[in-house]
Design a protein around this nucleic acid. Structure first.
Length: 635
DNA sequence: TATACCTAGGTGCTGTATCC
DNA sequence: GGATACAGCACCTAGGTATA
């Protein structure tokens, strides 16, 4: 076999025998050997003379075959996964497709239903490697470009670019909370750890960050032993390692585990709670301390109080155990776990008061915002003092004619984002409700638009190319008579005849098929823009993508029906998606080619509310059993 | 019929891709 | 580089199939 240059990151063909051939990625290469990463997760060092770049293999194929590699699906699976995979699940199928696309290979057909389905693979001549050399790029610039542009990094998962605006709305309601800030105990643990480790005793030896990680692992071990394997009521970061940790004893004695998370520095408490810790006013950023090898935070007065409160729960010998290498008996660690338990910290009044000070009762802007949000949730009965019960749809949140739909809804633990947003959407538009209602209208507009964009995405996935003027027929064909009538009526008529928003939203998630979902999404948009609530909050959404889209297409020509407006709405969304993709430097999902929309790098598209962090808020409130009395003290 | 084994599908959690 | 969403993984269970 002739010698060919191999490069890191390249897809190569390793022909062990004529029958045993594998595709792999070059991890490292030197003059004689290349280390390969296989798609099934294995790694192996192979002599370079046994390897060929897969594209070179294709180029060497017979011209009569048009340099197309045709192979049964089962054989392709063996080449990728070392197994024929008689049932090809979506995940490995996606792995193969993504790998082919990523490395400039095209395939046909799109779907491979049977093991003996033949898959044809060939070079995608429009592909330009992201890491192309300067010489390549110079040559590329000289080439005519009448077909596809060069490939960009993979597409965004947020095709209409709605996430950033949603986060701004969430931050206005609950600044400092993130999707990870669910346990009040971590604030005290981190404050105590910062206070302890930034002291003079730890200037040599392991870094303070490593010591903090050890303290966290020690805490997690004690909590896990305290709450046995069947008790997940006190969840901590690293919960998934619980079984492994509990098995890691020798004669009922444990050491601090070496690992609770794959990367504790990026996924541990210190990192995930850092911004929240400062937003709550417990600590301030102090990068100069970091330069001195200290933890780069300085505790505030609140933070010092919180740390002292937590310290009262820390067993005397815990620190030495966590930072040392000694073992302790299970029963001792269980007792420590009981003292440290995050679910019990509320019983310590000093700790609870200090936490509430930072959380909602302090004088900072963020604390005041959180206080106003929490107080209104209490006033509306969305937050109550009954934390143990599973959350239910609040009776006043359900319009009378929608009660049947609400009864069918599954019970939700805590406080879900959709429950809060739909509740406020149902209330009168007042200044006191305005921020919640702005978020609700934004999310509902986003849902309706996304449902409509998704029908285009699914059509492109099936056909590769579609005309926006034909999608209306598809939606109408699958719809019931009432929906067809509403889609054909002028916008005002559709708004008046459509079910309520509270009915349409669950429908959107219940109906099967993208076309039916788009039909419901259209009715949701019509209903929304016709309601008083929309007119009340629209000024707050000026400049946001959903408002621009519905204003420019729907509200500008209210005499048109949804069916008539659909092609223009889709065109506006595809254009918006194009702009978003350019701004992000990401590959687009689709683009206009004359009258038709053409598939490019389509991604899976799911519908849902963005996180407004109400479940996380509920969890924090539950940890300290926040009550109405606490809020009265905050006035 | 009992049992073992296999697979699909659901769920929850972690690690990483993505976005700003 | 920080914050976030989500893909992927591990685990579990139900149901189907093969075998004794």
């Amino acid at each position: 076999m002739k010698e060919i240059d191999l490069a890191q990151g390249q897809v190569v063909l390793w022909e062990v025998t004529t029958a045993r051939r594998y595709l792999a990625i070059v991890r490292r290469v030197d003059s004689e050997f290349a280390e390969l990463d296989f798609f099934w997760g294995g790694r192996k060092s192979v002599r370079t003379v046994e390897l060929r770049p897969f594209v070179a293999y294709l180029d060497e194929r017979d011209k009569n075959s048009r340099r197309v590699f045709s192979v049964k699906r089962s054989t392709l699976c063996e080449m990728f996964f070392n197994r024929p995979l008689r049932r090809l699940r979506p995940k490995p199928a996606r792995t193969i497709r993504n790998a082919l696309r990523k490395h400039g290979l095209r395939y046909d057909p799109e779907e491979w239903p049977k093991p003996d389905t033949r898959v044809r693979i060939w070079r995608d001549c429009s592909f330009v490697s992201v890491k192309a050399s300067t010489v390549d790029s110079t040559i590329e610039a000289l080439l005519p470009r009448w077909l596809e542009p060069e490939r960009l990094p993979p597409s965004s998962r947020d095709p209409l670019g709605l996430q950033a605006y949603a986060e701004r709305l969430a931050n206005a309601l609950l600044p400092g909370l993130t999707v990870f800030t669910t346990r009040a105990g971590y604030y005290g643990f981190l404050a105590w750890a910062i206070q302890l480790l930034n002291g003079p005793s730890f200037s040599s030896g392991p870094t303070r960050r490593e010591r903090l990680n050890r303290l966290e692992r020690g805490l997690v071990l004690c909590e896990f032993i305290q709450h046995d394997i069947n008790d997940n009521s006190c969840a901590l970061l690293g919960q998934r390692s619980k079984t492994q940790l509990l098995q890691g004893h020798e004669a009922n004695r444990y050491r601090v585990p070496t690992r609770i998370l794959k990367n504790q520095n990026s996924a541990g408490a210190f990192r995930l709670y850092a911004t929240s810790l400062t937003s709550f006013g417990f600590a301030v950023d102090a990068p100069d301390l970091g330069a001195d090898r200290l933890l780069p935070y300085s505790l505030s007065d609140f933070g010092e109080r919180l740390a002292r409160g937590f310290k009262r729960r820390v067993p005397d010998a815990f620190t030495n155990f966590a930072l040392g290498d000694e073992t302790r008996h299970r029963d001792v660690l269980r007792e420590w776990g009981g003292q440290l338990c995050f679910s019990e910290l509320r019983l310590l009044e000093q700790y609870r008061r200090a936490f509430l000070e930072g959380f909602i009762l302090g004088n900072s802007v963020d604390a005041e915002r959180r206080f106003l949000t929490v107080r209104r949730l209490f006033q509306r009965g969305l937050l109550t003092e009954r934390y143990e019960k599973r959350g239910q749809i609040a009776p006043e949140a359900t319009a009378e004619d929608d009660s049947a739909a609400a009864e069918e809804a599954p019970e939700l633990e805590g406080l879900s984002n959709d429950r809060v947003l739909l509740y406020f959407y149902d209330q009168a538009p007042t200044n006191d409700n305005r921020d919640f209602q702005t978020a609700a209208v934004f999310e509902l507009l986003g849902l309706g638009l996304s449902a409509i964009f998704r029908v285009l995405v699914e059509d492109l996935r099936s056909h590769g190319r579609t005309r926006t003027s034909e999608l209306g027929d598809r939606i109408m064909r699958d719809a019931d008579a009432r929906t067809r009538r509403l889609w054909s009526a002028p916008l005002a008529g559709a708004a008046a005849g459509a079910p309520t928003v509270r009915t349409l939203v669950p429908d959107l998630f219940r109906v099967e098929g993208a076309a039916q979902c788009a039909a419901v999404g259209g009715l949701l948009l019509a209903r929304l823009v016709g309601e008083r609530m929309f007119r009340a909050v629209a000024p707050n959404l000026t400049g946001s993508a959903p408002l621009i889209l519905v204003d420019s297409v729907l509200r500008s020509q209210p005499e048109r029906s949804l069916a008539q407006a659909l092609p223009e709405l889709l065109q506006a969304m595809v254009e918006r998606h194009g702009e978003v993709s350019v701004n992000k430097g990401r590959q687009r999902w689709c683009y206009f080619d004359g009258e038709a929309v053409v598939k490019d790098d389509l991604q899976e598209m799911a519908l849902g509310f963005h996180s407004m962090r109400f479940p996380q808020l509920y969890s924090l409130c539950r940890d300290v059993r926040l009550g109405a009395e606490d809020l009265r003290n905050g006035n």
